[in-house]
Amino acid sequence: MNIFRLTGDLAHLIAIIILLHKIWKSRSCAGISGKSQVLFALVYTTRYLDLVTSYVSIYNTFMKFVFLATSYATIYLIYVKFKATYDHNHDTFRIEFLILPSLALALLINHYFNFLEVLWTFSIYLESVAILPQLFMVSKTGEAESITSHYLFALGSYRALYILNWIYRYATEGHYDLIAIVAGVVQTVLYCDFFYLYITKVLKGKKLQLPA
């Protein structure tokens, strides 16, 4: 554990809390892509199957449990409790175009060819693109509420901080995982356009509005 990974994990946790809090307080999931949330639930489910087979630390077990539980809670809020507020007309990204290539790539490029390992690899590939339905939704409506922007910023920061963690781990332990690194870089690059808008607009008190 180092400061980059810890702050990365905290950014991830904060993102989830921001999202759940926003939906709960406003009693609405307007502007939130249910499809991205379904993909995240799929990511955590396939990655944290090792929760029952291997133990790393109390911290790891606790965080995995929290990410799993909150991802299903988010889906419940969007598709059941506040279903009437779900903006499905703007949430039209075809997620099979992300799931199937991620699965194919995981079958082809992995560290070991076994069930848990392929699912872990699939989760890494899928996570790198899981935000696309949400970004697509923002681009389709041309705007995002500030709170949604804060959520996206925290969520994007998490993998960017993990990249610093990987650099640090390589320098100090010689540890590196090429699959996680390449996917993590792809994931962070997808947020770059959003980061730019966030810093130049949202932080200056303006609404995140895309040029027409």
Partner: peptide
Amino acid sequence: SKHLERHDEL
């Protein structure tokens, strides 16, 4: 166990 060695992150 190789799985455990590598995947110690979230």
